[in-house]
Computed example of a mutant assay.
Amino acid sequence: MKQNFTVRHGALDGVEAFLSVAQHRSFRRAAAELGVTPSAISQAVRALESRVGAVLFIRTTRSVGLTEAGERFLARARPAFEELIAASGAARELGQKPAGLLRLTVPRSVVPILLEPLIASFCRAFPEIEVELAASEELVDLAAEGFDAGIRMGQFIDPDMVAVRLTKPFPFVVVGSPDYFARRGRPRRLDDLREHACLRLRRSNGALAPWSLNDNGRSVEIAVSGSFIGHDFPTLVGAAVEGVGLAQVPAPLVTFAVKAKQLVRVLDPFAPMTPGVFLYYPGQRQIMPKLRAFIDYVKSHSGAAR
C-alpha cells in the first residue's frame, strides 16, 4: 500500500519555537533567542501541540519540562530540523557564488575545436565549479535530463531557449581526400554527386540526413548514396581522411585537415551557410551563479562576433 509522504500545510510551524524552549527549558529565554515575545512562543507551542495531538511540555510557575511525548518529538525533530537548516545553507551557498556541478550536453564535434581550450581555462578560473560534458548528438530536454545548458548549432535550438553565440556563422562544406579524388575525380556540379561515394549521417531519430546545398540561392536537399554511415561528424571526417568517400561537415571541423592537405574542399559555391554554434539554456528569471559565470566567460572568451 502506497504511503502518503505529503507534509501538511503548516506542519513545520512552531518546531523552531519548540526546540528553543526544549533547549533552554524556558519560554522567556526561547523568546529572547528568537527575537519574539514569550506569548508568541507560547502560542506557537500550543498550536504545535494541537497539531501533534499530544502535550509536549510540563509547565509550572517555576520550570518547564518535557513530557514523554515531548522527549520523543525532540529526539526526532532536532536532527531533522538541523538537516533542514544545513540544506538551506547549502542551497543558499550555491545561489550566492559560482560553485557546484555544471552539466552541459554538447555534440562530439564541438569538443575538440571549441570546448577543450575554453573549458580548461574556465576550470582554472572557477575551481569551485565542476564541469560535466555529456557528448551526444541527441537533442535532449535540458530540464528533464538535469542539464544546466546545452551547445548546438543554431538551427537546432528551440525558439523558447536563450541562446548565446559561440562562433560566427560558417558553411557546411564537402570534402574528400587527395587519394579519393585521384581515384574518382572531383565533382564540379551537384549532379556529379550521383557518381560519388557520399558518407551519410544517421540522425538521433534514426533517419538518414540528406545533404543540404545552395543552388544559385535556392536551398536544395539531396538524398546521397554511399556505403558508409556514421552517427556524428567526427566519424565522417575520419572516414573522409581515409579515402572512403566525400563528407559534408561543418567547415571549422576540417580547418586543420584542409591546411594539412589531408582533405580538399570541393563544391564551395554550393556550400550553405549555418547560423553557427550557440550555448543555450531555458529562459529562467533567475540563473544559478555557476551558469551565469559560464555564460559570461564564454561571451568574453569565445571570440565570436557580437
Results as ranks from 00 to 15, higher is better:
residue 305 A to P: 15
residue 30 A to R: 11
residue 197 A to N: 15
residue 52 V to K: 09
residue 51 R to Y: 01
residue 287 I to R: 05
residue 96 Q to H: 10
residue 223 A to C: 12
residue 147 F to R: 00
residue 192 D to S: 13
residue 4 N to M: 07
residue 58 I to F: 13
residue 145 E to F: 06
residue 254 V to I: 01
residue 197 A to G: 13
residue 115 L to H: 02
residue 108 R to S: 12
residue 136 S to P: 07
residue 42 S to F: 08
residue 29 R to G: 03
residue 171 P to Q: 08
residue 105 T to Q: 01
residue 254 V to A: 00
residue 214 N to G: 11
residue 213 L to M: 14
residue 138 E to I: 02
residue 49 E to D: 04
residue 45 V to Y: 03
residue 147 F to I: 00
residue 41 I to A: 08
residue 108 R to D: 10
residue 174 V to T: 11
residue 75 A to F: 06
residue 239 A to S: 10
residue 265 R to G: 02
residue 182 A to G: 08
residue 14 G to F: 10
residue 267 L to Q: 04
residue 240 A to Y: 09
residue 36 V to F: 08
residue 269 P to E: 07
residue 3 Q to R: 12
residue 86 A to S: 15
residue 82 E to I: 05
residue 83 E to G: 14
residue 144 A to G: 11
residue 299 K to Y: 11
residue 54 A to T: 06
residue 114 L to E: 07
residue 298 V to A: 02
residue 176 G to L: 02
residue 224 V to D: 06
residue 276 G to I: 05
residue 86 A to I: 10
residue 133 L to E: 01
residue 7 V to P: 15
residue 77 A to L: 03
residue 190 L to C: 05
residue 255 T to E: 12
residue 190 L to Q: 06
residue 64 V to A: 01
residue 219 S to R: 15
residue 7 V to M: 11
residue 116 E to M: 13
residue 219 S to H: 14
residue 69 A to D: 15
residue 116 E to I: 08
residue 19 L to Q: 08
residue 156 F to G: 11
residue 250 P to M: 04
residue 94 L to G: 05
residue 46 R to E: 14
residue 27 F to S: 06
residue 236 L to R: 06
residue 279 L to C: 01
residue 88 S to P: 09
residue 153 M to D: 10
residue 78 R to T: 09
residue 216 N to I: 11
residue 181 F to C: 01
residue 202 R to N: 09
residue 277 V to M: 06
residue 151 I to W: 03
residue 127 P to L: 05
residue 128 E to L: 14
residue 255 T to P: 03
residue 209 A to C: 08
residue 104 L to Y: 00
residue 246 L to A: 01
residue 210 P to C: 05
residue 100 G to S: 11
residue 290 K to I: 01
residue 36 V to M: 12
residue 212 S to F: 09
residue 222 I to S: 14
residue 77 A to Y: 01
residue 216 N to L: 14
residue 121 S to R: 14
residue 74 L to P: 12
residue 25 R to D: 14
residue 89 G to S: 11
residue 3 Q to H: 09
residue 31 A to V: 01
residue 274 T to Y: 04
residue 190 L to V: 08
residue 95 G to V: 06
residue 112 P to W: 00
residue 240 A to I: 02
residue 102 L to A: 03
residue 49 E to C: 07
residue 169 P to N: 03
residue 222 I to N: 11
residue 109 S to Y: 11
residue 94 L to P: 03
residue 263 L to Y: 00
residue 292 R to C: 06
residue 218 R to T: 07
residue 182 A to E: 06
residue 15 V to H: 12
residue 275 P to T: 13
residue 187 P to R: 10
residue 164 V to G: 04
residue 260 A to S: 14
residue 26 S to I: 00
residue 144 A to K: 01
residue 225 S to N: 15
residue 227 S to T: 15
residue 225 S to P: 14
residue 281 Y to S: 01
residue 17 A to W: 07
residue 278 F to D: 10
residue 36 V to Y: 09
residue 118 L to I: 04
residue 288 M to I: 11
residue 81 F to I: 07
residue 218 R to G: 04
residue 297 Y to D: 07
residue 69 A to R: 14
residue 289 P to R: 02
residue 224 V to G: 04
residue 173 V to S: 04
residue 20 S to R: 08
residue 211 W to I: 05
residue 279 L to W: 02
residue 146 G to W: 00
residue 243 G to L: 02
residue 39 S to E: 10
residue 154 G to C: 04
